[in-house]
Design a protein around this nucleic acid. Structure first.
Length: 298
DNA sequence: CACTTGACCTGTCCGC
DNA sequence: TGCGGACAGGTCAAGT
């Protein structure tokens, strides 16, 4: 479930790997993974060069030199993995020297695999694979002049890692008299862009706030703590290469280590809280599995 | 109007 | 071993 840190890492990887490359072919293997695909869309994409890669919340924007962009949302199980033309040959020779357990080996061996939904081939014969086990993710082609009208982008809240995202901004975005649970508000992309289940749980733990607390009950002090916790968790995860709970890999197929290295509650129900020793509970909030230390979080 | 729930999918895990 | 069902969670539509 790629959230902001994971998408940011993919963005940085693609920035390095595909910018400047020219698309030779596109193969959408599953219609719903590229809604709106047609011969006309194909004719715009083929022959275009990649000129930029950007991120907005959990959405990737791949700029083409043809006044269009590819909008890519990975939803829960989407992956974007780049492979050089001779990748499989390299793998078999490196397996000879390192063996299968080489620590830098990609988690994904052969591509395409059964989850591959769209394949981009570049003129140098390298490829970008869009894999998506559950088919919830999508790629869309949008004219650059229509980007601001995109219904999803238009509603997105502020970028939590931007310099102007202060705790006052977070306070403004949280509806003052709202009775909804603070966790539900954090998952709402209109409030803040990019937070998902993992970083909602981790931020609330770090701030010492119980996920079921109504937004209206939060003090200024708590909102300020929550703001600091959100920024801190997201930055730490980027530094750790993101979170791999099940499917996430970066643009070269590598997993992330945030959950192992720094997560305090997510996927740790039954273990004891590192801060107080109380067992971590798993409850349901906003229809999502939610991990909480009921002693540290009030 | 504000908020919650179900649908969309597929793979994994658990209990029988 | 196999099978049914619960579960995983981002977003939107439908329901309360």
């Amino acid at each position: 479930m790629p959230e902001l840190p994971e998408v940011e890492i993919i963005k940085r990887g693609l920035d390095r790997l595909i910018v400047g490359r020219k698309i030779a072919t596109i193969e959408p293997l599953v219609q719903r993974s590229f809604p709106g695909f047609s011969a006309e869309v194909e004719s715009i994409i083929v022959g275009s060069a990649i000129c930029s890669v950007a991120r907005r919340g959990k959405l990737l924007l791949v700029g083409l030199d043809s006044e269009h962009s590819l909008l890519i949302h990975l939803r829960m199980t989407g992956q974007l993995v780049y492979r050089q033309a001779d990748y499989n040959g390299q793998m078999s020779s490196s397996n000879d020297s390192f063996g299968g357990g080489h620590p830098n080996a990609s988690l994904i061996k052969d591509l395409p695999d059964k989850t591959t939904r769209v394949i981009f081939s570049f003129t140098d014969d390298s490829r970008l694979y869009f894999n998506d086990q559950r088919k919830f993710g999508y790629i869309k082609l949008v004219r650059n002049s229509d980007l601001d009208d995109d219904s999803f982008i238009r509603k997105l809240g502020p970028e939590p890692l931007a310099g102007d995202f202060t705790w006052h901004v977070l306070k403004e975005r949280l509806p003052k008299k709202s009775t909804r649970a603070i966790k539900a508000a954090l998952l709402d992309q209109c409030v803040v862009a990019g937070i998902g289940n993992i970083y909602a749980d981790e931020s609330l733990f770090a701030a010492g706030i119980h996920p079921t607390r109504p937004v209206v009950s939060l003090s200024d002090d708590e909102i300020e703590r929550l703001h600091g916790a959100i920024c801190c968790c997201l930055r730490q995860s980027i530094a750790d290469g993101g979170s791999t709970a099940r499917n996430y890999v970066d643009s070269q197929g590598m997993r992330g280590e945030y959950l192992e290295l720094h997560a305090q509650v997510f996927n740790r129900s039954g273990q004891v809280c590192a801060r107080c020793g109380h067992p971590i509970d798993k409850i349901r909030v906003a229809g999502r599995g939610t991990h909480v230390c009921s002693k540290c979080q009030k």
